[in-house]
Design a protein around this nucleic acid. Structure first.
Lengths: 248, 248
DNA sequence: AAGTGGTCTAGACCACGTA
DNA sequence: ACGTGGTCTAGACCACTTG
């Protein structure tokens, strides 16, 4: 099998396969939690050897887009599983334990994108956003205040009741809601972290004094192909919790 | 080649090769910046196929312990290169640009490990540490105040003059000093990030008001086999810079 | 037993760097 | 021209899961 005879071209075969599989994922050919075709099957489909498919899948697994299970198959990653549902939550107790918060929604509205958020989301300033506000309680105490914004087009018809239901009844995270209800799959994110002082909004919500130092984490979350989907700013009381980062 | 005939055992061959290469690195068989033997050479030495050596090296490259250069060879990673010397510095300007600081040492002493630092470094409380204090200036302005502590045994005979010389004359980072002078190679780190208020020490050094919110980053840096080597706490003024983290 | 991913091999050829 | 890493193949066998 020569390179020239395969679809996209100008790239190593396994990179081309990677793109083809990614396209399949983005196009919804396979859904989160489902198995993709076996390596042999894909090798036949794309007319390459099993080893080449394997290398492509290897990289997609590294990127957390696929999950292998020996003897069973290769599955589309999901954020709805116990174990993966808090993959993007980097908060630990001071003892280094991971704790799972309870979410309390306190605001649901529409608004216009300011220039900063518009730039981050790759939309025009002034375009309409859905704005969610919530508090995350850890062990019953408020620790995080979130201001979350997405283009309204992505969450057509969303209501605060739907969110409440998903989060409370199904014990789901926001990202699992995006995934199951809106077919938006968050696959990566960037965070910019700063220190700030608690203001009139965050201080009472987090039950801290005005001016208390808070962590301010600005996140942009991406779907396939690094397309920005969600902007959020988290204000975090780090008295009993800390943001954890592993450098390699 | 059967598994049973190769040295460590009970692991996939490529994992065993990985361990053997890691041991070579830790034992100083190959030094930072130098080439390790070619894949074919290692395959002969370990009596496995080139593909197996390749897979082992692949993973070590992913862990930033080796660097491949096509046509030239595979090299031991170093922190002394332009491009890798600030690998562990996660600060960006608000525009997302990376900027390189100038280091100003303001303290050099010996002290005893308190229980917290002792635990992080895996040493006995009360053991002797070298304590370094410095300010990092970005674009001429103080942004970071560092309190850095290591077991004294690791930096035998170090003097403040050596540090000054290394940092000023050779434009080196602290980690490149560890690497070149003390054969300590930092390969990974963990950071715990919190918000704190500027105190009597940090406020004047960073030229901010007492009580200003600062980022407080506690880092433990590791050498091979996750052995902790250095503890540090950084106090960061995030008015014009932010900590950047990429989540996958 | 059959199908899946996981490991390993041997050999081919390409792309890059150096001499 | 030669040696290095980079890609690709075809085929073997192992380990795990399911019927």
């Amino acid at each position: 099998m020569k390179k020239a005879s395969v679809t996209p071209n100008f790239l190593p075969l396994y990179e081309q396969i990677k793109l083809l599989i990614t396209r399949g994922l983005a196009d919804g050919e396979w859904h989160p939690g489902e198995a993709i075709p076996s390596e042999m099957e894909l090798a036949r489909r794309y007319q390459v050897s099993q080893g080449t498919v394997r290398k492509a899948i290897d990289e997609l697994v590294m990127d957390n887009m696929l999950v292998r299970r020996q003897g069973k198959g290769t599955f589309v990653a999901t954020l709805t599983d116990e174990g993966t549902n808090y993959r993007f939550l980097n908060l630990l107790t001071l003892d280094g334990e991971k704790e799972y918060p309870q979410s309390e929604f306190i605001g649901f509205q529409r608004g216009k994108a300011d220039t900063h958020v518009a730039k981050r989301l790759g939309v025009l300033p002034g375009s309409t956003l859905v704005i969610l506000r919530r508090v995350l309680n850890f062990s019953g105490k408020p620790v995080v205040y979130d201001d979350i914004r997405l283009p309204v087009a992505l969450l057509k018809g969303i209501t605060s009741a739907m969110i409440e239901d998903h989060v409370n009844a199904h014990k789901g995270t926001l990202y699992s809601l995006y995934e199951t209800r809106y077919r938006i799959r968050i696959v990566s994110a960037q965070e910019r972290i700063r220190a700030t002082a608690a203001d009139e909004i965050s201080a009472p919500l987090l039950n801290v004094a005005l001016g208390s130092p808070l962590l301010c984490v600005e996140r942009v979350a991406f779907t396939y192909d690094k397309q920005p989907v969600e902007w959020r700013q988290s204000y975090i009381n780090t008295e009993n919790y800390c943001y954890f980062d592993e450098l390699n």
